[in-house]
Amino acid sequence: MIDANRKDTLTDWIAKVPAITLGFWIIKILATTLGEIGGDAVTMSWLGETTPNASATAWHPGYLIGTGIFAAVFAAAVALQIRTPRFNRWLYWFAIVASTTVGTTLADFADRSLGIGYTGGSTLLLALLLATLFTWYRSTGTIAVDSVRDTRSELFYWLTITFSQTLGTALGDWVADTQGLGYTGGMAIFGGLLLLVAFLYFTTKISRTALFWSAFVLTRPLGAVVGDFMDKPHAKGGLELSRYSGSLALLAAIVLCILIFPQRAATKAH
């Protein structure tokens, strides 16, 4: 309940992003999985491979074209998100899904078309993510979700998300392919790390903000390896499901979860 004697306004304590609940994490994982399959559906299935047996580092224009398409959609979604005066669940999750798809195509473009590989891509993106979080903290004094109430914080928030979503794709591929653990191995590793973060949340006093961003980053490579497991060929350890039908099924699941799970804005502790 708001204290009538306080001088702050609603915008001082209500964020423009959702509160962190179990429903949030379920939708987030679904969104990251959709981003992987949806991104591949555009760059690989729709735009097509340049050659049937292209190597992992071969030039593939689909990655660049797909990145341009999804980057434009993501930029429009973030612009609308910033312009809206309060938390809008549909707009927020639209922006998240857009960030996961552009993260997928951007990571594939950097790792494969630019030839820096999964190791180089993961290292570069991790450095960019940490630099963004550090700059955000130095600029505003906090990187907590409930602080995302003004344009500057929102810009840092979405920039952080962009790097985390892109890092997730590269990191998922690095574990599954470069380290040779496969998609099921990747799911076990990232799922296990998420369970560890949850354990630390409930049993320790470690910074909730640090744990949140750790979990937020880890959901992306988990979604990446799950998505790859669903659509990659049997010969590569995947289920070889249709990217188009998989994308539609995941999109329907996200819409259903948004309707079912309570959606409320994060609020500043008083």
Rank of each mutant, 00 (worst) to 15 (best):
S113N: 13
S113A: 14
K28R: 15
V197P: 01
I161W: 00
Y244T: 13
G186E: 04
T104M: 08
A210L: 15
L133P: 01
R83V: 00
A4Y: 11
T11V: 09
T162M: 07
S55D: 12
Y244F: 14
L80G: 01
A56F: 09
L124P: 02
F70V: 00
T50R: 10
I20A: 11
I14V: 15
L248P: 00
T100E: 00
V197N: 07
K268V: 11
T140L: 08
A269G: 04
Q179P: 00
Q81K: 06
A176P: 03
V255K: 03
V175R: 05
L130Y: 02
A79M: 14
A76C: 12
L251C: 08
M230T: 06
A79D: 05
F74W: 11
A144C: 07
A170F: 06
I20E: 12
S207Q: 08
N53A: 10
I206T: 12
A98I: 12
R138N: 13
T178V: 14
K7Y: 07
V255W: 02
T32Q: 07
E240Y: 09
A127Y: 05
A215E: 08
I96H: 01
T132R: 08
A198Y: 09
W59Q: 06
T267K: 11
A95K: 04
D108T: 07
A75T: 15
W213G: 01
V97Q: 00
G62M: 04
R138P: 03
T105H: 04
L128W: 02
A224R: 03
D8P: 13
F261L: 04
S242M: 11
A198K: 12
